[in-house]
Nucleic acid binder design. Structure first.
Length: 507
RNA sequence: GGCCCCUUCGACUAGCGGUUAGGUCACAACCCUUUCAAGGUUGCGGCACGAGUUCGAAUCUCGUAGGGGUCACCA
């Protein structure tokens, strides 16, 4: 059977990783069955509504590559896809329930409800609406509504018996009807609540699989009751485990304890492929145990029954590991370079040709976890006036003689290819009969201003002969400027003297 | 607290009556090495507990404990 699924985010803030998570599974489930994936904006909460949020959510799905078949952007035969534009439909459906006596207007004010709860609490009763609005006669109800008195509409739910539904992953779930307390389906501002809007829209749009987070399990009976009240066929319910915070108790993922904004991960240089792959492994696994796979691989191998139910902790370390794997060996070099290039350009960095960029990216990518790591590591390729770290200056000073020799030898080198540079360096080390590090570390420091960087030969090759020579020259000048006295022994004595002087001034 | 759901290494998971309980992240050691990474090898570490069913239980049943969710005119 072809499945019609949907993701129904509320435009209340930053696009949430939980939305991306549930969205991914809905997308895959629909695609795997040749069905449709709908994105519907549930903007029925005017209080929390954020006008920028919708566009950002749509953009996020686009960035992730989870393109809906129907959405406010894409349109579709079942639109509009924004609940605020479907108010007439909700109104009609509510009127129908009202007319059939399956729902009723309730005129209590917020104060009255608060007082009711207070009373219940004092008397030790279970909290919840006590159904007092049911007593208003149809005539009176109509008259008061007509007169403009504010009201909500509540669904009349059975006081006795129980309501069951099948959760695809957990089997039958039963809740006593007394636990359900005439929920509000239409708010006093004329907007529907989630329960009503969701059921009405899912039915209208042909959604036949409701796949959402576990937190909805306890309100599913309300939805079942609504489907029945309308005489509609139930969709299949699939409740996904809730993503959890990495705290002790593994509470529901939250902004306070974790970065939940997809945009934020994007800005940090997390790749959409990696984020999706990571999310796919939260509660789902490939039949063959592979951990790295594309969304298409997931679609080709998808099986709802392979979803596990324990709430998975959102582990940043592992996300970063996934991202690193994509950068260093899953994506093509050209692909990575094309994503890194804009970050270099932002800094005003330029390069000779495509090959130079590819060489740099190739050299750096085993060391990068995110896209943002690249500009952090690549500065010395583009900026000739970099600062030297203290450590680097020491290395340069210690290897001054070698650098002077190498400066001379390199200047005489005709061809500056990787092998030629390597031969020169290795040959020099052999002739000098010194430990290779004694030569390479000063070189690395001179070339990069740092003591930790990729291989010297690789860097030298990318820089080219002229820049290498210029850098050796600058490094040698820097040590005379910064470290006029390269005598560790004397330096230590001087420090000691200072310490003693300080001691003296104190006492 | 009532109700509902869940429970395999610290984290993500494989397992679906017979396995030395496997893999990945993290952590540690070693190898490689020109520093930093990457890579390779190895190690560390787990079936929440108790009954029952069975020749045999991580796998099935029940109970206990723990955790989570939910009890809104938010979704």
């Amino acid at each position: 059977m072809s499945k019609v699924t949907r993701i129904a985010p509320s435009p209340t803030g930053d696009p949430h990783v939980g939305t991306a998570y549930i969205g991914l599974f809905n997308y895959v489930l629909a695609r795997a069955s040749g069905g449709r994936f709908i994105l519907r904006i549930e903007d029925t909460d005017r209080e929390r509504y954020n006008p920028e949020s919708e566009a950002r959510i749509l953009e996020t799905f686009s960035w992730l590559g989870l393109q809906p078949d129907e959405s406010p952007d894409a349109g579709g035969p079942n639109g509009p896809y924004r609940q605020s534009e479907r108010l007439d439909s909700y109104r009609e459906h509510v009127d129908r329930l009202l007319a059939e006596g399956k729902a009723y207007r309730a005129f209590e004010t917020a104060e009255e409800l608060t007082a009711m709860r207070e009373e219940q609490r004092r008397r030790g009763l279970d909290a919840g609406y006590d159904g007092r609005g049911r007593n208003v006669s149809a005539e009176e109800s109509a008259r008061r509504a007509e007169a403009g008195e504010p009201f909500v509409v509540r669904l009349k739910t059975p006081d006795e018996g129980e309501t069951s539904f099948i959760d695809r992953l957990r089997g039958e779930i039963t809740i006593q009807n007394r636990e359900i307390r005439d929920p509000v389906i239409l708010k006093s501002d004329g907007y529907p609540t989630y329960h009503l809007a969701n059921v009405v829209d899912d039915h209208a749009m042909g959604v036949n699989v409701v796949m959402r987070a576990e937190e909805w399990i306890t309100s599913t009976p309300i939805h079942v009751l609504l489907y029945r009240a309308f005489g509609w066929e139930l969709p299949e319910f699939v409740h996904m485990p809730l993503l959890r915070n990495p705290d002790k108790n593994k509470s529901k993922i939250s902004k306070r304890k974790l970065d939940t904004s997809v945009d934020s991960y994007r800005q940090q240089g997390i790749l959409p492929e990696a984020l999706l792959n990571f999310l796919a492994n939260m509660g789902w696994s490939m039949p063959d145990g592979r951990e790295f796979f594309s969304v298409q691989d997931m679609i080709d191998n998808f099986d709802v029954d392979r979803i596990s139910l324990g709430g998975p902790v959102f582990d940043l370390r592992k996300l970063r590991h996934f991202n690193a794997r994509y950068l260093k060996d899953i994506l093509e070099l050209e692909d990575v370079a094309s994503r890194v290039a804009p970050l270099f350009r932002e800094r005003g960095w330029n390069w000779e040709d495509e090959d130079e960029l590819l060489d740099i990216v190739d050299l750096l990518r085993p060391r990068a976890e995110t896209l943002q790591d690249f500009p952090g590591m690549a500065a010395y390729f583009f900026d000739d006036d970099f600062e030297y770290t203290e450590e680097a200056l020491k290395k340069v000073a210690a290897g001054q003689a070698h650098l002077e020799d190498l400066e001379r030898e390199i200047s005489m080198l005709d061809v500056f290819d990787f092998d030629d540079i390597d031969d020169l360096l290795q040959g020099y080390v052999q002739r000098q009969g010194v430990n290779i590090g004694k030569v390479m570390q000063p070189m690395r420091s001179a070339l990069t201003g740092q003591t930790s960087a990729p291989g010297v030969t690789e860097i030298a090759f990318i820089l080219g002969k002229q820049r290498v020579l210029a850098r050796i020259g600058r490094a040698l000048q820097s040590i005379t400027a910064h470290l006029p006295d390269d005598n560790p022994q004397k330096e230590a004595e001087q420090r000691k003297a200072e310490a003693v002087a300080q001691e003296g001034s104190r006492g």
